[in-house]
């Protein structure tokens, strides 16, 4: 955005100029800027249509624009005199570099935590991590202390309020209510509650030899899979697979009126092992060849999206700088002449 009248001799060229300077001037020309902006459009179309085209097709024209800008800075004194414009454009380059750095070190994933249980770092239900991700997910500890979600008539979800406790970097236990746009941030990892949540029949399994192990079965998300509250579950420490079904008659989320997510007051859990079938209420147990299995109760589980990108605060600051530069530039430029002149 340089006034044409202020174009430097370098951009128009001259026979006495060394070839290198002419090359830099050509690289920094506004014509090249326009060409690269046009080239960026098909790259965006590719990126929009396919995830696999979101790196090089975009990176090449963007890198070209960055080079174009730096060359313009070198070759065009008129450009260099416009501090605010330089701030805007350099901030754009910094944004590109930060986005690239973020893409090389991000982590995205999902996890599910049973009410009352701790997430103790490490494994996620699903993970998408960049090659150079180097965060300390193993150090993250937090527990889901339960959640409330109100529903409007028509089973329309209201805000999620999830009570969590975590251990901060000083080893102190802290508590907060997170949900929707208020994530839990630990070690740079941002944990967001998701619409994914449901019921978790909890069992205490006492092997024939050994100590009691408590485990929870995360049934499919509720209410999306309202009529599929069943899951296969491997008995802890064994190869035996059990089929678990939560059975209740209550209407939890009433389409006709406002309601709230809660565990049913009366329920039974059906456990099936091949051709054997048991209906358990809380506190009831069955004896299996591997040990004794007791239904401890019914809890809930919450699904979280986890996101890590160390560049986020830098991106926000750089973007703010960019827009300040742009506003400053235009403000100074337009102040020279009244709008209604």
């Amino acid at each position: 955005m340089i006034d044409p009248g202020e174009k430097d001799a370098l951009t128009t060229g001259g026979p006495a100029l060394p070839v290198l300077l002419r090359g830099v001037a050509a690289l920094g020309s506004l014509k090249l800027t326009l060409t690269l902006l046009v080239v960026l459009v098909p790259a965006i179309v590719l990126a929009y249509n396919s995830e696999q085209w979101r790196s090089w097709p975009l990176a090449l024209p963007l890198a070209g624009l960055a080079v174009n800008l730096l060359a313009a800075l070198l070759s065009n004194p008129a450009f260099r005199r416009q501090t605010a414009l330089i701030v805007f454009h350099l901030a754009l380059v910094a944004l590109l570099l930060l986005i690239a750095a973020g893409r090389m070190s991000y982590l995205k994933g999902t996890l599910e935590v049973t009410e009352g249980a701790w997430y103790e770092g490490g494994a996620l239900t699903s993970t998408d991590a960049a090659r150079w991700h180097a965060g300390d997910l193993d150090q993250v500890r937090f527990t889901n202390l339960g959640f409330t979600i109100d529903y409007a008539a028509g089973v329309r979800r209201g805000p999620t309020r999830n009570h969590v406790r975590w251990i901060d970097e000083h080893g102190r236990a802290r508590e907060a209510v997170i949900g929707d746009q208020d994530p839990l941030v630990i070690e740079g990892y941002r944990f967001y509650t998701s619409f994914n949540k449901g019921f978790a029949p909890t069992f205490a399994f006492t092997p024939a030899t050994g100590e009691t192990i408590v485990g929870a079965v995360h049934l499919p998300s509720y209410p999306i899979h309202q009529y599929e509250q069943t899951r296969e579950w491997a008995l802890p420490g064994t190869h035996r697979k059990l089929w678990i079904l939560l059975d209740f008659d209550e209407t939890i989320l009433d389409p006709a009126q406002p309601s709230a997510f809660r565990v049913p007051a009366e329920y039974q859990v059906i456990v099936r092992d091949d051709d054997r079938r048991w209906a358990l209420h809380a506190g009831e147990a069955i004896d299996l060849p591997e040990g004794r299995l007791e239904l401890a109760g019914l809890r809930t589980w919450m699904g979280y999206n986890v996101f890590y990108d160390w560049t986020l605060p830098w991106l926000a600051a750089t973007a703010a700088l960019a827009v300040l530069g742009l506003g400053w530039h235009f403000s100074a430029k337009f102040r020279r002449r009244a709008w209604d002149a």
Binding site: D182, P183, Y192, F307, A316, A320
Partner: peptide, 17 residues
């Protein structure tokens, strides 16, 4: 910019094409 900030908090990502 403000949309990206909101998207980060609302959907856990600032840009998703």
């Amino acid at each position: 910019i403000t949309g990206a900030i909101w998207a980060q908090d609302a959907w856990g990502r600032y840009w998703a094409w």
